[in-house]
Write a protein that binds this DNA or RNA. Structure first.
Length: 340
DNA sequence: GCGATGTATTGAAATCGTCC
DNA sequence: GGACGATTTCAATACATCGC
């Protein structure tokens, strides 16, 4: 279960900060300083501990909590009075700082285990509004930016289904006229990979969405360096206040860093450029890259990654999402400083 | 054949929107 | 203004491929 795993990593990271001897001692005593974790949560964690579920996560999270408690940049060995767990509830409206824990009202900590994902948002939110203002009703991005190729792909899909599958006689001519039930039924025949007869249409669809998304993004970014720099800050989740990220990378090595503020960022780096461009893959992708100069040493440094523009629940299923990945290792990313 | 790396899919749970 | 289905967002896991 994803939920249990998340609870283990977040709560145990917090418990590790309290100066106790072990995970099991912390779970048994249910320390008063740990706020927002109820008896049912402890029962679930103890049960998981007993059947050895998420054993690795228990160890990793505990080690991260301990490391933060001892770090010079962290708690420097002071035992915190309050470790608040934000819990499974998302904050009302749009909360930008991705904090799962708050220590003594001050230190914000985000737990990220095995993820290189920066954002997972609607395409319009990223490409047109630059992650700044969240708006309702996203609409179908594919139909909006690549209607011709989207329709062509659907047309190919209809022909394919007419020849190879039963029960698709009712499909409308236009992809935008599909109803909810028809959308659902289109999932199975195209799951995992496109059948060969659709490969070409799928390719041009992917190319068109990549190009159109990159174009929209470029036009929203404009030419002013300050606007582009700000967009890069948002992409990297820089916030007005610093916060910490504790977790592991995708190879299970511990990753502990502080996310600096735009002010810190400007002290250390001179902004050169932020660029985006389309890339042809099976699914639509837009690459991004920021180039900077380290002021202290006058040396260039860059940060890069990509955005997948994809259906989040299978082909032809609902509005697409934009998944933003960071390729640069966290500790080499400008604005992220290793916890010392 | 196997680990490392990269890509695609799935799942849970929140909020949003619409209808009554 | 509440019920409930739809949409959005969180992000982890599954799968594919590459290099040896």
């Amino acid at each position: 279960m994803a939920t249990l795993r998340t609870e283990v990593t977040e709560i145990v990271t917090g418990l590790g900060m309290l100066g106790l001897a072990s995970v099991d001692e912390a779970l048994a005593m249910r320390p008063a300083a740990m706020i927002g974790v109820g008896d049912d949560h402890y029962r679930k964690l103890i049960a998981a501990r007993d059947d050895g579920k998420h054993r690795v996560q228990f160890e990793e999270a505990w080690a991260n909590g301990v490391a933060f408690a001892e770090a010079e940049d962290g708690l420097r060995g002071r035992v915190p009075r309050r470790v608040e767990w934000k819990g499974p509830h998302q904050a009302p409206s749009y909360e930008q700082t991705p904090a799962d824990l708050r220590i003594d009202h001050v230190y914000l900590v985000s737990c990220k285990y095995g993820s290189r994902l920066l954002h997972n948002v609607s395409p319009g939110h990223l490409f047109e509004r630059l992650l700044a203002v969240r708006q309702g009703s996203a609409g179908d991005w594919y139909a909006e930016v690549a209607s011709v190729e989207y329709q062509a792909l659907y047309q190919a899909a209809r022909h394919y289904l007419a020849e190879h599958e039963e029960g698709f006689d009712d499909l409308p001519l236009a992809v935008t006229d599909l109803n909810a039930d028809q959308h659902k039924r289109l999932k199975l025949p195209f799951s995992r990979r496109w059948p060969e007869p659709l490969a070409e249409a799928a390719h041009w669809f992917s190319v068109a969405v990549s190009q159109a998304s990159a174009e929209r993004w470029l036009s929203a970014l404009g030419h002013r360096a300050s606007r582009r720099e700000e967009a890069l800050w948002r992409l990297l989740r820089l916030q007005p206040a610093p916060y910490f990220v504790l977790g592991t990378d995708h190879r299970r090595r511990p990753v502990r860093y502080r996310v600096d503020t735009p002010w810190d960022f400007r002290q250390r780096f001179a902004f050169k450029s932020f660029d985006v461009w389309p890339e042809a893959r099976v699914q639509p992708v837009v690459r991004w890259r920021g180039d900077l100069i380290v002021r202290a040493t006058d040396t260039p440094v860059h940060v890069d990654g990509h955005v997948e523009v994809r259906w989040s629940h299978g082909r032809f299923q609902g509005s697409p999402e934009a998944k933003v990945y960071l390729k640069t290792p966290h500790l080499e990313t400008p604005g992220y400083s290793e916890l010392a």
